[in-house]
Every structure is written in structure tokens, then in C-alpha cells.
Amino acid sequence: MSNSEPDVTRESATVLNRTDLTRRLVARLKSEEAVIGGIGFTNFDLWASGQRPQNFYMLGSMGLATSIALGVAVAQPQRKVFALDGDGSALMQLGSFATVAAVAPKNLAVVIWDNGAYHITGAQETLTVKGADLVAIAKGAGLKQAYWAADAGHFETLVQRALINDGPWLIAAKIDKERPAGVTERDPVKIRLNFMNAIAPGS
């Protein structure tokens, strides 16, 4: 696998599908990697991809998926940790990109689904439509390994690189406005305990 990356921008990135990409990502997880699913359709599709016990689903606290994942990554440096979040959520906590860059956890990858919309509330436009480029912002915040996925195959290549090589990583995919494939169950304590048991040291 080459380390040279194609020059992909938000404009040139192929429009992909969140349900499909979430399933492609989850299919590549073989070692009990932790996944934090951000608020909204992001975690609905994570739920629909197979309800792994190593998934944590956020149903509130918009914007914190990356921060929660950073905490898990720092606590368990041997485990790969993914944060999945939408563009609206990411825009709410852009500073967390700088924090991730400063802490520089080798085991963390942030995946952003960018459909330019606050999808779950009625698909109102986000500022990524007006020109805010989350990969450029991430790079500016110090995350050197930040990339747009050119297409689904390239997305999988980037995920595989994040699984094998040191992070932190940020992988952004431009996605459509299809609805998610499921709805997450909503008991927060159950979600926490299932996740903690699944990633407890020694498990």
C-alpha cells in the first residue's frame, strides 16, 4: 500500500453512503476495536451495522464523540479507537481536533460523515456547504494525517491504514442524505455498561 495519497478535496470526493461505509468500516474491525458513534444518524447506522458490544452510542451531548474517543484512547493505548461523527457535530467542537493533535494518540482515528446537513432535524444545511472544509480545518489544527476519501475503495484503504499504522487519523467522507438503516436502543446506562464490559482490561 502506497503512502502517497491522491489529492482529494471535498469537491472532488465521490458522494458515498453512510450505511454502506459504516458496514465497510465495521467489517474491517477484527481486534475488538472501540467505536464511539456520534449523535444522530451516525450512531443509528453504527447500531444497524451489527451492535458490537465495543460500540458506544451517543444520543445527546452533541459534538463530544471525538473527545470521548480521545479519553478511551488515552486510557487504553493498546486498543484502536474510532470516533464516528457527522459534519454538524464536528463543527460544534472544532477545538477538539487541536486537542487530539496535541495529545497525539497513536491509536485514534476520527471518521467524519459530511452530508452538509443537520440530517436528523430536517436536513438543514451546515456550513460545510458554504465552504468549511473539515479536512483542511483538521490539518490546520495539527492533524497531519487527515484525508478525504475519494471513493468507497479509498475509504477502506484509509481505514486499513488507520488500523495498521500509527495515528491520529482523520478520515472524512462526503455522503448522501439517505436515511439510516436502523434506530439505536436508548438506555444510556446499558450502553455504558455493555461497552465498559466489552473493553474492560483483560477482556
Binding site: 464523540a65 488515552v74 486510557a75 467542537q93 486537542t99 465498559m196 473493553i199 474492560a200
Partner: peptide
């Protein structure tokens, strides 16, 4: 130095502290 994390905003810290506990710290 690995034990100190300076934040850009306080909300981040709520997420990081909860995440750390999820991971057992």
C-alpha cells in the same frame, strides 16, 4: 506529561473524562 490534557473548551473535558472512565482510568 501524559497525564495532563489542556483543553480548548470545557465541554471537551467532560467527554475526555467520561471516555477515560469507559476505558478504566
Amino acid at each position: 506529561q501524559d497525564r495532563a490534557v489542556v483543553l480548548t473548551t470545557e465541554e471537551e473535558g467532560v467527554g475526555i473524562c467520561c471516555g477515560a472512565w469507559l476505558g478504566g482510568k
